[in-house]
Nucleic acid binder design. Structure first.
Lengths: 87, 87
DNA sequence: ATAGTATTTAGATATTTGTCTAAATATACA
DNA sequence: TGTATATTTAGACAAATATCTAAATACTAT
């Protein structure tokens, strides 16, 4: 869960997730949406992958990234728990 | 929202929120629950306060901290949006 | 006033993080 | 085979973060 919070704690990474909500994209397509370098985006994608918020699938010379929202449930559960204050 | 994600991105701060779910506590009571120093906890409380996840109220020489979960809704909304994948 | 308790602020330091350029790897195709 | 394209890995660096000790502030009570 630590990894998920870490992954979410960056505006670029959150924006990547918002992009992938629309459709799966290759690393290159994602890079095009930002002003920062390819390697930096690659690093962000790696952190998202570690958190299991995205899945990477190789297709020929491209790597397609897609959302994996199952981990989001875990976070939502934690947040709900916090919201259910005792007193 | 950035501040909220930042505040949530630390195990100690998340644990503080979990404690405050049980009951309001003074800074000193919170410090007792951890092995790290008072000033460090004070710093964590400050970040939680900046994110508006907690509210501080002075009562005499004590400062009582309590949960404020309204901000959590914002995060949940964002997460739900991510979960509602288009395709 | 003075002393004691509660908490924060200041300043220092080690670690983590986000970014970059250059180089490496992998695939496609002529 | 050789070259172009897609992406990652490596290494460097500046900025941000978590922690500490020491000092400052604020309140209580003798």
């Amino acid at each position: 869960m630590n990894n998920v919070f870490k992954a979410l704690n960056d505006p670029t990474r959150r924006e990547i997730l918002e992009l992938l909500r629309e459709r799966d994209m290759t690393a290159g397509e994602i890079v095009e949406q930002f002003k920062i370098s390819g390697p930096s985006i690659s690093h962000h994608l790696d952190l998202l992958k570690q958190a299991k918020l995205v899945i990477a699938e190789k297709e020929g010379q491209f790597i397609y990234y897609s959302l994996n929202t199952t981990v989001v449930d875990e976070i939502m559960k934690w947040l709900l728990q916090i919201k259910s204050k005792k007193k």
